[in-house]
Each structure stands twice: as C-alpha cells, then as structure tokens.
Design a protein around this nucleic acid. Sequence first.
DNA 1: CTGAAAGCGCTTACAG
DNA 2: CTGAAAGCGCTTACAG
Lengths: 349, 349
Amino acid sequence: MTTSQTGSARSRRKQVTVTDIARACGVSRATVSLVLRGSPLVHADTRARVEAELKKQRYVYNRAAANLRRQTSSSVALLINDLSNPFFAEFAAGVDEALGEEGYVTLLGSTGESPQRQLAVLGSLVEHGPAGIILSPAEHSDGAALQRLLGAHTPALVFNRALPDVDWDFLALDNERGARLATEHLLSLGHRRIAFYGGHADSSSCRQRRQGYVAAMRAAGIEPDAAWLVECAPTRFEAARQTGELFACAPEATAAVCYNDNVALGLMLGLSARGVRPGADFALTGFDDIAEAALSTPPLTTLAAQPRACGRLAAELLLQRVRDPGAAPRRVIAPVTLVVRGSSGAAAM
Amino acid sequence: MTTSQTGSARSRRKQVTVTDIARACGVSRATVSLVLRGSPLVHADTRARVEAELKKQRYVYNRAAANLRRQTSSSVALLINDLSNPFFAEFAAGVDEALGEEGYVTLLGSTGESPQRQLAVLGSLVEHGPAGIILSPAEHSDGAALQRLLGAHTPALVFNRALPDVDWDFLALDNERGARLATEHLLSLGHRRIAFYGGHADSSSCRQRRQGYVAAMRAAGIEPDAAWLVECAPTRFEAARQTGELFACAPEATAAVCYNDNVALGLMLGLSARGVRPGADFALTGFDDIAEAALSTPPLTTLAAQPRACGRLAAELLLQRVRDPGAAPRRVIAPVTLVVRGSSGAAAM
DNA sequence: CTGAAAGCGCTTACAG
DNA sequence: CTGAAAGCGCTTACAG
C-alpha cells in the first residue's frame, strides 16, 4: 500500500447477497451462485425461481468478491500521458470499447508525461488488481523501475514509445514508413532541400521518423545535411517559437517534414508571422492526423494513424497476452497512411 | 449479473499476502494489517521489521479484498458519450485528476449517445461497486430506468444534460447566460436579424441556450421570429448540410448564434460553399471553445467552459455526496466566458 | 502492544 | 440436481 491518501467510501447500505436470495427461495447459496454463473446443472424450475427472486430483490452481483474468490480479474488499467491530447483520447476510446466487448472495465490513469507520477499512478493501479496494463509511457521512463513495480504479476503492453529494459509486448505506429511516405511526397513535388523539424532525438518515435526521412532522401540521391534535422519540443507553441532556429539551421530549405501535427501547425504560425505562406511559399507535412489538421489554413498534409483502431488492437493484444502469459513478447506495427492536403503544395481549399 | 460475456482472467500467480509477511516476521496477520493501515498501535521496532519484509517480498496490497472486508469502495465510475469529443475528453481528464488526488480510481464507460448502451454499461459498472457515478447522460435517456438501476446503493452526479425523474446532484454549464452573452455581442456589433442555429429543441441544453438568445433579443427590443430558431443535429456535417435550411427559414439573417462549436464550424463550411464569407459577410458564434475553434478560418468567437475545471468540480461534488449521502440534492452551475475572435465580425487574423 | 477468531460476498470441489 | 464446508485476502472488535 502506498503511503498516499486513500479515498474509501462507506457504500452499499445493506447490500442484497446470494444469501438473501437463497433464503427467500429455500435453496443453498451454491445453487444461487450456479444460477448466476449460468451453470447447466441447475433444474429449470429452480433456475426460474431464483431468477425471479434476483429481479425482485434488485440483486447486484459483487464482482470484486467473485474475483477474490476465483482469483480472477475483470479490469484492465490504461495509463496514458494526457486525455486532452486528441490522439490519445481516441486511442483510449478504442481501448475502452474493445475491453468492454470482452467484459472488462477500464481503469484510467494519467501521467502528464512525468515518470515520477507514472510510477505513483501505476503503483496505485496495480493494487486494484487489473488483469493487465496498457501503458503509453511518459518520456524518459525508467523501464526497469516499471518492470520491477509490476513484477511478474501483471502483463503489460507498451504503446507508441519503446521502453528500454522491458520484455513486454509493444505496439507502435509505423513511424519509419510514415516519415518516408511524407518525404517521398515532398520529393515528388520537386523539393530537394527538405528539413526535418521537431521532436527530441532521444525519443524512439523521433529517431524512427528521422530514419524514414533520411532513407527517402538517400533513395532520391540526396545526402541530408545533419543541420537539417532540427530538434524542438513537440508542441505547437515551441514549434512556432523556434521557427527562426529552423531557418538558421537550414536557410535554403523549401519544405519540412514535421515530427507531428502539433509541430506542423506551430510551424505554420511561425511561417505566417514571417510573411511566408505555408503551402505556397513553403511546403510542410505533419504526423497523426489530429482533427485540427483538416481545418488549418491551409489544411495539413499528414499521416493518419487511426488511433481508435490502434486502441482496439492494443486491447486485443493485451487480452491475448493475459490468456497466454507464457507466449514470447510481440512487436506489432500499426500501419499509417498519407493524407495529402494543401500544406504540401497543392492549392489551399 | 448481466447475461453478457464476462472477461475474467486468471491472474496473480502466488500472490504475496499478509499471511506470508506475518509468518516471515513472526507476528500475526493483524499486526501486518495495522502496519499497512498506518495504525499508531504498533511498536516502532515491529513496524520497521514488517515494513522491511513488505519491501523484500514485493508485497502488493489487495485493495479489492480490503474493500470487501471494510465495505468500502475506492473507485468512481465515469460514464460519458464519447472520449473522442474533445470537450468530454478534457472533462474526463479533470475528473480523473481530481479523483486520483483523493485516492480513487476512475472506471471508464462510454455510451456513444445510446440510451440502451448506457443502461448496459452502467449495469456492468455497478457490479464493480463504485463509490459513486458521474454521468453525462446520452440524449433521450430514461431517467427513471437509470435511477432504478442504481437503486439507493450508488450516489450519482449528472453532468451537462438535465435528466428527468431523478433526484441526483446536477452540474451544468451556464447555457442560458452563455447564449445571452453571445447574442449581446452580436447585437453590439449592429446585427438585428440574428438566427439561432442547431441543436435539438427537446434537449435541455438547447432549450436553455435558446432562452438566453431570446432574452437578449427581447432586451434589445427585438421579438425573434420563431422561424429564426432552426434545429439541426449538433455535428459539423449536419450543420454544413443544412445551411440551406437556415437561409430558407431566415433569409434576411446577417448573423447566427450557433448551438455549439461543431455546428458553427459546419456552418462556416456551408457558408463558404455558397460564397458567403464567414466573419465578413455573415457573423456567427459557437459554444464550448474546442481546440479547433481558435484554428478555424476565421477563428471562432465562442463560449469557453473550462471542461477540465468542470471535471475537477464534478469529482469534488460527487465525493462530497459520497461522504454525506443524506444531504439534499444540489444544482451547480459552472460559469462560461465569451471569447471574441474573428468569426463574429472582427478582421480575421 | 499483539494474537486468535470471525466475517465481507462469492465460488468450488465434494458428498449425497 | 442440491447442500455443507472451506477459503480468496483482508480488517476489526475482543481478549490478553
């Protein structure tokens, strides 16, 4: 138990239990339990009587008690950085939807990109005994510490960002291919001096996107200058603020592959502020296809990842792992598709 | 227990329990339990020995077992329509954040605006024994059925949309005042023939927003024509599609107060498609201040509701109710502020 | 300050 | 097909 405060509310005044139902029907608690679990062993008449009584007394199944006795769990924990990021909100919606269909409930937790909070929240979530955990790690997470915290108890699936030193399942976007598609698209429009803007070089997703960019450039016979890879925190604000930095490093660039949509949208603001018209004077692409991407001016060419489908897939992979804890860890790549809009050079809508 | 499929996973292989710790330390299980719960009754030396052993054996507290024995709960259920709506995603983030601080975990459920699914999901959530429920009801919810399902067991707080026939706490945005502010703003810019576009007249939030609009118009000496109140499903797509409808009903209108941001963004598309420039030829306002509002062309004048703060407030209100089930039901109104941007007539950015 | 015992609501062999 | 009994992991009076 953590030392933190612990909300615990006195609840259920005089809960109706199997004992009440059994007594009212003149059968044993075992029989009521068998009815509840849909066992074929119970005589049809008995079953009907019990079911009527369950309804009459408004019986509510106590899943926690059943789980305790059966040594099972009917929950899965979902730990993400922040629901206010639409990509993760959609992902969470997909996870919850798929888990619900399989009879599991989602325990929510969020970290706000803080590895400390991540450990604390995870520590609290495991006390609720989830069957497994879907974790989209905070940046700079300590994989070993997380692994230690979960022990061998609880299987986990890591989403989106590789975690060092763990042997859990991993689901990631096809970052490398996505960035390659974006770069090839810009190349096909005639751009040669293309920068890569945004992200932290020490994050796995940034590294992979950079690799895709470099691969596409080389395939076109261009050796990208190291200075063309410009770091920047992946937020709209920072991307706008550091637009000058980008042009200081790559003054001759005519286009940029951006780390993600937020960076691209921020860059568009930064360009406009300098009198450079995005899409017309300078081409750029994003990554994620968040809702704003289609609504910006010009609309943003980007890579669509279907976060809801990813969420569903994550839930399914985790449940497979829960059912078969012995299987070898898996790496699954979710595909990503290029969505061409005005920002890469076509006329704005 | 519902008849639906029920995921339940065999988990925890050989969990470490208080018994293991007690045995290793040569004390009773009661003593270990007292240490866990921070009781001052335990001798400092004993406590230290037990705590060392807890760490050594990687003990994980089983909150479900404790809750069963103590007849308490450490979870709260959150039932919303859809996380992919950014307003509700922010709300959920606020709820989860505030609940976490109080030691509760959030059980997530979503309804997709279906009253049937809402009943089913709620039925499944109550089996997990939450201390309370925060419910943002689906449209056309059956309040009586929901009340019956929860019984007197579980306190609930209703958010955003009034529910008939229930005596639960209620937290709502100040719809009436928000629409009044928006209308007054358009009036102050010189508009006289202002329509109200979007929403279903039978939803409480739409009725309240319409009331605010009507009140502001009357206060300005204008009796709004009934035809100027045009219904439309509150989605971007429908609002764009029915733009013609709006002008058929209110051909002389020069401005519109829209039910929400999605309606306003859809109307902007519909206007542009007809060659009418939003913000320049026709003024409009939204409601909610979703992230896209600031990024549209022109940016959208709208009402900001601080969904995250609403979520925190909802969590706090619910926990108060959990602690004092006897108190009279409360109605709380969350304030809303006007954010003026280009769509209502000022020059676009 | 510590321990033995009972019990939260459920399920599951095991008899019958 | 049904019932008596034990037990999941924890907590809490109650003795000592």
